[in-house]
Simulated assay, not measured.
Amino acid sequence: MFVAPPGYQPVYNPSIPYVGPIYGGLRSGMSVYIQGVIPHEITSFNMNLQCGESEGSDIGFHFSPRFDNWDKVVFNSCQEGEWGSEEEIHNMPFSKGDAFEMVIFIKQEGYQVTVNGQDLHTFNYRIPVERVNALQIGGDVSIQTISIIGGGNPGDDQIGGNLPVMCGQPIYNPPVPHSSIIPGGMFLKKTIVIRGMVPLGANSFSINFMVGSSRDIVFHLNPRLQESVVVRNSLIGGSWETEEREISFNPFLEGQYFDMSIRCGNQQFKVFVNGQHMCDFIHRFQNFSEIDTLDVEGHVQISYVHF
Rank of each mutant, 00 (worst) to 15 (best):
N69W: 04
I262K: 04
G255V: 05
A4F: 14
F281V: 09
K107V: 13
R131D: 13
G212Q: 08
S28R: 10
R232H: 06
N287E: 07
L253Y: 09
N133A: 14
A99Q: 13
P14M: 00
S15G: 12
I104R: 02
R232E: 01
F45T: 02
Q112E: 15
G139D: 07
N153P: 15
I149C: 11
L225T: 00
S142V: 12
V73L: 12
I59R: 02
W83V: 09
G238K: 06
G20T: 00
V73S: 10
L26N: 01
M278P: 15
G255F: 02
L235F: 15
Q50N: 10
H306L: 13
P183E: 12
R27W: 07
D292Q: 02
G56K: 13
E109V: 15
C167G: 12
V218H: 01
L200K: 12
R195H: 07
H62I: 03
G298Q: 10
G20E: 00
P128T: 03
V229W: 01
S142Y: 10
M92D: 03
E297R: 09
F252Y: 11
P175Y: 00
G238H: 04
E244H: 13
C279A: 14
N133Y: 11
G97P: 01
S248Q: 14
V300F: 09
E130T: 12
H121R: 05
Q9M: 08
T145D: 00
K190L: 13
G212A: 13
G237R: 09
N274M: 05
V74T: 12
G110L: 05
V198H: 03
H306Q: 11
M260Y: 02
S248V: 11
G237K: 05
M30Y: 02
I236G: 05
G238S: 04
C279N: 10
G238Y: 04
I182S: 02
F252R: 05
C78T: 05
F2C: 08
S248L: 14
V300P: 00
S44W: 06
M186W: 05
R66P: 14
G81P: 00
I236A: 10
V74K: 14
S44L: 14
I159Y: 05
V115K: 00
P39N: 08
I22Y: 03
H178C: 11
P14G: 00
I192A: 06
V32Q: 01
N208M: 04
S147I: 00
L188D: 02
D295N: 15
K189E: 09
E290T: 07
S213A: 09
